[in-house]
Each structure stands twice: as C-alpha cells, then as structure tokens.
Design a protein around this nucleic acid. Structure first.
Lengths: 146, 146
DNA sequence: CTACAACCTACAGCAACTATAGCTTCAAGG
DNA sequence: CCTTGAAGCTATAGTTGCTGTAGGTTGTAG
C-alpha cells in the first residue's frame, strides 16, 4: 500500500478541488509537499489530516487567516489553549451576530411579502417598503457580507 | 435652496462611501447624473431615493443583480408585481436556509468551546474537534458563503 | 506506442466593494 | 486676487476564497 498519493486523490478525500489545494499551499495554510521525479506533488496522511482540519474550519466559517492562527497555535505545542479558545469565541460572536441580523431580515421580508397584493407595480408595497428605510426592524445591519 | 448636490453629500445621505456610488454608476444600478461645468457629478432627490433603495436592499442581502431586476420591474410600471414578489420570496428562502445553517454552526461552536479545559495545546479539544469531521452536527453546510 | 487523463505553472475572473495614484476643481481665508 | 486644502475626477490594483482557462508535461492503460 502506497503511503503517498497525488493531488487528485487528496482533493477527493478532502472533498475539495485540486486548485483549492494548490491555493492553500500558495497562501501558506498547507505545507509544500515533496515532489515526484516528474515534479508532481506527493501527499501523505499528515497532509490529509491538515486538509480535513482546514476544510472543517472553513465549513464552520472560519477565515483562512483564523485557520492559519489556529494551525500555528496547534504547532506551538506547549502553550495554554486559551488563544485557541479566543479564536473560537471570536468566531462564535460573529456567527451569533449574523444570525440576529438575518432573523430581523427574515421578519422584514415576511412583512414585505405579506403586504403584497396582486396589484400593479405602481403601488407595489414591496418596492415602497424596500425604498423606505424608516420601517426597518433591524437598524444595526452593517456593510458586512451576509 | 439648491436642488442639486455633490457626490460627497449623496454619499453622506446614503450612508455609503463616495467610491461606492461611482461603482454603482459603473455597474448600472445608479443612472449617470448630469455634470457641472467642472465635470463634477450633480445629484438630485431622485438619485438619493434610488440610492437609499439600493442600500436598503443590499442591507437586506439582495445581490446587485437582484436589485437591478427589482429596479427594472419598478420602472416597468404597469405590470403585476408578481415578479417583484418572486424575487423577494426567492431571497427569503435563501435567508431562511442561511439561518438554519448558522444555527447548526453556532451549536457546533458552542459544543467545541464548552469542551475546552484550560489545558495545553497538545490535548486541546477545540483543535481535536475541529480536525474531526465525524462529530459534525450539521452535515449539510455547503460551500456557499455565510 | 499511442491516447488520454491527470498533472504542472501562470494568470484572469467572480462579487462588491475599498484603496491608491496622480491629477483637477471648488470654497474659504488672508 | 491668491493660495491652500478639501473634495472631486479617472484609472487601476487590492481584498477574500476560491474557480476557470491556456498551454504545456507526465503518468498510465490498452
């Protein structure tokens, strides 16, 4: 059984695309693997483990920058994990904020849709409401991407 | 009282940056305003109204493409607002989906954080959990941006 | 030995802005 | 009237996290 595998296999096991892996290497969240005689990347179990870690973190919404921090902390080895905890808590806060905003948004959309009769656009309440900021239920949604 | 104002004033009233307005013009969600003798953009109440509409939609998470559609429909004037309603409903669906995902994510993060003792990084449960995909509570979080 | 899949690098593109450079115009103070 | 500094102008590059393309090389199966 070969202990090393190609980027294609790693991609399949990691549930991502080949280019994504090369991108991770480029931005320094995945270490540069050794190459074959023909210059192709050779990955091992360690890389797979790390890739799965990254993918899971990404699915949880951590940024690559946060992941880089987590990986650095993981390798530091003998420091208290308070910093790791801090990164996670920081992320939890932003997630909770997004949920709050989206909930307000949902309410507003429901209100808007409920107000729509089958009339003509001239008096369409959706458009009126969208143009009118003052009725906003949520007044704290910033410019941050949803 | 002057009926026309500069891009800086429009930005202030619209709660966005000057470049954003120029960007909106460039991508065609804001109409090109007349210019002064010195080539500076001159905006009027109409533009402000439209900008507020756009900003409000953006805060509600509509894409610029959806906003373009809404604006086109709004100007059509004599068509039923069913299409407008459809855009809003479509958006409501995606919002509800996002909320669901984020809620699962929040649960997972809370679980992860709860498992963190004040130990050392070597055995930090956060890092272990992040590396272990199998315990995932949510198995449906796709690649869509949160 | 010949296809053809999979690999390689390098670069362009996506959304929705934001920031920079290098220039011109406007408004206020002396 | 002149100067100074803020605000405007265009054009272009950068951001994040990828994805897609072009144009070439390597690996593998028949």
């Amino acid at each position: 059984m070969a202990k090393e595998f190609s980027i294609g296999h790693l991609a399949k096991m990691g549930g991502c695309q080949v280019q994504t892996i090369r991108y991770y290497e480029q931005v320094g969240v995945l270490t540069t693997p050794p190459r074959s005689s023909g210059n192709q990347r050779l990955y091992s179990a360690n890389h797979l483990e790390r890739l799965l870690f990254i993918r899971h973190c990404r699915e949880l919404g951590f940024s690559l920058d946060q992941i880089r921090r987590l990986l650095t902390l993981a390798q530091a080895g003998d420091r208290p994990c308070g910093e790791v905890d801090a990164v996670a808590r920081e992320h939890l806060r932003t997630v909770e904020l997004k949920i709050e905003r989206l909930a307000g948004l949902r309410a507003e959309l429901q209100r808007i849709i409920a107000g729509c009769g089958a009339g003509r656009v001239e008096r369409c309440r959706i458009l009126q409401t969208l143009g009118d900021h003052s009725q906003c239920l949520t007044d704290d949604h910033g410019s941050e991407g949803l």
